[in-house]
């Protein structure tokens, strides 16, 4: 069931294990262009591992990853990103000592064609490219509402703003697929509501396909068109938010916690 027609991203029975521990096993998944899909599951279910497989941080022991019909299994993470898959992190991992603008520029630089040497020597071709990159980075910061903080050290910003820097940084790589790892973690309900609006907004504006991991069921149920549930590294359900809420397997996986609350 590899690269199906219309699928931008496909995982074909992918497995990853660490030592004897199987983190993800026989995971099949497809993402259609323009979709907004949620990946949920209890803690330690293997959600972030799935992200790490897609981005090339982990190489699967079995199975393949296809991006736009192309086998990208085993590609180096920087190649995967350049190909068009960007991500954010559960624990953010901003370059804290760099300014907000520089954080975005680091990511944008993968799009430049000038060599590093040309950059070090400030050749004219590079200077022009750099100017374009800066303008683009500022536009993105404007889009996430952080333009006036462009020259602030990223590590000194409050949590919610750091989350937005992270999304701007991911968008700077011009991705087609955006992977968001718990974007609402640590946000209050009001911030989460704004984030939902923001995610839908950027998807339409940038023509993105989004896969997100989230524990906040309100967010997941509110914006995702399709939801995949995993537990112990295996898929246990997939469907629309309504279908998932009523799925007994899902409810038992969550031991009647969050899933029931919103059912």
């Amino acid at each position: 069931m590899a690269s199906q027609n219309g699928a931008i991203l496909a995982l074909d029975s992918v497995s990853v294990s660490f030592g004897g521990l199987v983190a993800v096993s026989d995971f099949d998944f497809t993402l259609g262009k323009g979709e907004l899909v949620g990946l949920i599951g209890p803690n330690g279910a293997g959600k972030t591992t799935v992200f790490n497989i897609i981005t090339g941080q982990y190489e699967p022991v079995r199975g393949k990853v296809f991006f736009r019909g192309r086998d990208i299994t085993g590609w180096r993470p920087d190649r995967v990103t350049c190909a068009g898959i960007a991500r954010t992190f559960q624990n953010m991992r901003l370059f804290e000592g760099l300014t907000v603008l520089d954080n975005v520029l680091v990511s944008r630089h993968s799009k430049l064609r000038s060599s590093m040497l040309a950059a070090a020597l400030n050749l004219p071709g590079y200077v022009r490219e750099e100017q374009v990159a800066r303008t683009k980075a500022m536009e993105l910061l404007d889009r996430v509402g952080l333009m006036d903080l462009a020259y602030t050290e990223a590590g000194s910003l409050p949590y919610g703003q750091q989350r937005r820097v992270e999304i701007a940084r991911a968008l700077a790589a011009d991705p087609e697929v955006l992977l968001l790892d718990e974007p609402a973690a640590g946000m209050n309900p009001e911030e989460t509501a704004r984030l939902m609006e923001f995610i839908c907004g950027v998807r339409d504006e940038f023509g993105l396909t989004i896969l997100l991991i989230e524990h906040d069921m309100k967010l997941v149920m509110g914006i995702c068109e399709r939801i995949r549930v995993i537990d112990y590294g295996m898929s246990i359900a997939e469907g629309t938010p309504e279908e998932i809420q009523g799925n007994p397997k899902v409810i038992s996986a969550y031991l009647g916690e969050e899933a029931c609350e919103y059912a």
Binding site: P77, D78, T81, C82, H109
Partner: peptide, 28 residues
């Protein structure tokens, strides 16, 4: 002040995250 220097500083903060921003870390 340069792109390569910026990459060096981001690699020294978080090598894996830099890789995921599309930067060829070995080159840096």
């Amino acid at each position: 002040r340069t792109k390569i220097g910026m990459a060096m500083r981001s690699v020294s903060t978080d090598i894996e995250a830099t890789r995921l921003m599309g930067v060829d870390v070995d080159k840096v």
